[in-house]
């Protein structure tokens, strides 16, 4: 994902922000980095950050690809609710884990296919096309659960949310695995290049021989799959499907994570790992606020303040005034800013 990056310095705002937020948490709460084993599973605030950040990180992986094609998927939160509802309801009806997983992932794929067809074939603007499923999807999930919170006791399904692999919580393991698979798919092949091409100019990439409808459908399908996995995780975590609240507003967190990660909403170049870092920044803030003991009324203000700083650090206009290392340029900028003057100085 750093193929086109001139150096690691370009990613400084994201990694810097993550480190800064983690350090701030540590100042507020000295035991922040303390980790111990509890029932064979890592336990600590830092673990909470990666564990609780996993659903948004998963959404961000799928969302990055969609945004790279100059699209957006507003339906991911609703898709989470659908996949969770399917999983809990089927488990309650006595189906085994393989069937349950297959069905809820299939539900996610189907939702993605629907979005993809609307965008690629019917050429509806992505924000409107996916808005349909954002609204209707939650209704579908409520139909599946009949408006109730469907709980289950199956330890196999609960393992996805509460289990661990080599002491690492399963949601983290799943996120890393999906990130690796996605990165391999787009970077070891020409797929990533084609996605970026479609995002920069759909017409001319079609002219250059890229099968744009197939690429578009593929990214929405992949995004639906990522959302379904995230939905499985949150459902397994609370051992119940809450169709009204599962994934509610998480599409906005996912878009935010992608943008904080430096991928432009105008499409083109994208960074998968950076989107995941963006998701971790958001979650590190959430966890920090909970640990800090601030009144809940301040939650959103603190969050907005920190995000503003991170986004300002990436602003093409503002970065002109910041001294930068040679070759560093903000990712979101269409054109590279004026050549850095005082090369070598670290920001």
């Amino acid at each position: 994902m750093t193929l086109s990056a001139p150096g690691p310095a370009r990613n400084l705002p994201q990694y810097g922000a993550l480190v800064a937020v983690l350090l701030a948490n540590w100042l507020l709460f000295p035991d922040f980095f303390a980790i111990r084993l509890q029932d064979g599973r890592l336990f600590g605030s830092l673990i909470d950050v990666v564990n609780r950040g996993a659903p948004v990180a998963l959404l961000a992986i799928g969302m990055t690809m969609v945004i790279a094609t100059r699209g957006v998927d507003l339906s991911v939160g609703a898709v989470m609710a659908i996949s969770g509802a399917v999983a809990a309801t089927m488990t309650g009806a006595g189906w085994g884990l393989p069937a349950v997983l297959a069905a809820s992932l299939a539900a996610g794929l189907l939702c993605g296919l629907w979005n993809g067809l609307l965008v690629a074939v019917l050429r509806i603007q992505p924000i409107i096309a996916t808005l349909i499923l954002m609204v209707a999807g939650r209704g579908i999930a409520q139909l599946v659960t009949e408006g109730q919170i469907v709980t289950f006791t199956s330890p196999a399904l609960a393992f996805i949310g509460g289990g661990s692999f080599l002491t690492v919580p399963m949601p983290v393991v799943i996120t890393i695995a999906l990130l690796a698979v996605t990165a391999l798919l787009v970077r070891a092949t020409a797929l990533g290049l084609m996605i970026e091409a479609v995002g920069i100019n759909r017409l001319s990439s079609a002219g250059a021989g890229v099968n744009t409808p197939v690429i578009l459908v593929a990214v929405y399908v992949w995004c639906g799959l990522c959302a379904a996995v995230a939905g499985l995780i949150v459902t397994a975590d609370i051992r119940g499907a809450d169709a009204n609240n599962a994934g509610l507003w998480l599409e906005l967190d996912a878009i935010l994570a992608v943008v904080v990660g430096g991928t432009s909403l105008l499409g083109g170049r994208f960074g998968l790992v950076l989107s995941v870092v963006g998701a971790l920044i958001i979650q590190a803030m959430n966890t920090g606020i909970l640990l800090s003991g601030f009144k809940p009324e301040f939650n959103l203000i603190v969050k907005a303040g920190v995000l503003l700083v991170v986004l300002l650090l990436q602003s093409p206009t503002l970065t002109l005034f910041l001294p930068r290392p040679k070759g560093a340029r903000p990712m979101g900028a269409v054109k590279p800013p004026v050549a850095p003057t005082s090369g070598g100085a670290k920001p």
Partner: peptide, 23 residues
């Protein structure tokens, strides 16, 4: 000793309680 919003949901209630326990 600590008070935070869990948005009336299971998922948030669990997340907030996790932090309370650590804090």
């Amino acid at each position: 000793i600590r008070t935070q919003s869990g948005d009336f949901t299971r998922a948030k209630g669990k997340e907030v309680m996790e932090s309370f326990i650590k804090a």
